[in-house]
Each structure stands twice: as structure tokens, then as C-alpha cells.
Amino acid sequence: MLSIKNLHASVEGKEILKGINLEIKPGEVHAIMGPNGSGKSTLSQVLAGNDAYEVTSGEILFNGEDLLALETEERAREGIFLAFQYPVEIPGVSNLQFLRTAVNAMRKHQGQEEMNAAEFMKLARQVSKQVDLNPDFLKRGVNEGFSGGEKKRNEVMQALLLQPKLAILDETDSGLDIDALKVASDGVNALRSDDRAILMVTHYQRLLNYIVPDQVHVLAGGRIIKSGGRELALELEEKGYGWLGVKDEDEAQVAG
């Protein structure tokens, strides 16, 4: 489904990704772990098409198609979804309006009829319950005044509504207490299916207790320096990133 080959990317002239190779097949759940500054978020942003990041070489194929040739919105319509590490607050645009516009953009692309306000409201209420968000939040501005946990659950809710082929979760666990983490994880697990892949980007392994990955990759210095199964994450938790010869400013918290 996703095939990344020798990907180099830089931001403001500084090279962050220095040759990433990654293969993800339908149905798989991959976790990318790494210390701060290793390039985890850059990889997510590049996949979603943020043009603040410049791809200097390499290629990304998504279902055989050249992903880098597509605009951000086209990638989304092809099934790429990024759950933001820092979801944006947009006062003045209601969540409901935002979500419905997004869902209808997707439906239009797939040749389906757009949903009217009443139909969508019904669906949105249903899905908001799934991530334990009070339906009242639909009337509020996008992420406006939401707690960190509410923002992350809103991201998961969007994934549930948009039903992507590849969901990229960028630090979806950060800022969540244990209850919120369970709710968000249940939402993500509900997305798991044979024709969908999930790429989790995280600093800590605790998320992986709830969303069990098929593969774990360690990203450091802009490269994947080690890949393995679930046990690799546990090993990291025990030994820290230093074990792999990697410096981490948050070393002390790795086990957190």
C-alpha cells in the first residue's frame, strides 16, 4: 500500500529525513518510534503533503501511485489521513460544518451523494459517542477551547468519519490521560481492517499496549536504524534509546 524509498526531506534548508525506506501492506499496523528531533513528525507531514517540507530526493508510492505528485487534498481523497500532533483551532468554523464539508468532499470524490445536514448530524452524533465526546462539541468552533485530550479524540473521530486507507497517527497519545488513551485507542482499533493500514508515530511505547503493532521501527537521525516486531518496543522501554547508540534529550522519560 505504502512504499517509501530513500526519502530525503528538509525544512528551511535543513535536511531532516536522510534516506527513509519503509513498506506497509494493507491490514498492517506499524509504529515508528524515536527520540525527539529524529524526524518522526517530518515524516508524517511529508506524507500528508505539507509544503513547508521539501522532498529533495526519493519516492513515495501509495497504491502504486506517485504520492508526491498529488496535492494535500488529493492525497486525503485517495485515502491518506493524518491525525495531527497539534490539531489546529479554528474559531468561527463549527466542527459540524468542518466535518460535513470534509465528509462530503470525500463522498463527492468517490461518486457518492453528499450528505444533507440532518443525515450528517445523525452520523456525527453516533461517531462522537464512539470517542466519548459530548455531541455539544459539534456546535463549537473546530478544536476551539478543547482540552488536549478532546483534540486528539476529535482527530480519531475524523478518521472514523473519513474511513481512510492509511491512517497516520502523529503522537496521538501525547497529552492523554489513561482513560482518554483507552478511548482513543478503541477508536483506532475500530479502524483496523484487512484493507486499511495504520502508521503510528510515537515517542513512548505505552500507546502500543493498546494498539498492538505488527512492526516497530526506530527512527533516529533521519533514518530507520532498526526494525522489528512488537518486542522491539518493549526492549526500548526497558533500555531506552541509548541502547541503540542514540542520544535522547528526554531519555529519562522514555519509559513513561
Binding site: N50, E73, R75, L82, F84, I90, T101, M106
Partner: peptide, 22 residues
Amino acid sequence: SIFYLVSRGIDRRNARTLLTMA
């Protein structure tokens, strides 16, 4: 904000419209 909206499949014109009206 524009990136956030277009990353959900909303086209750029619509994203700008939503933010302007907001």
C-alpha cells in the same frame, strides 16, 4: 489552518472560504 482543512480532503478554495467566513 488551510493545511489542516485541505488535509481532510477539502479543496483550497473551500478552505479559504471557510476561514474567511469564520
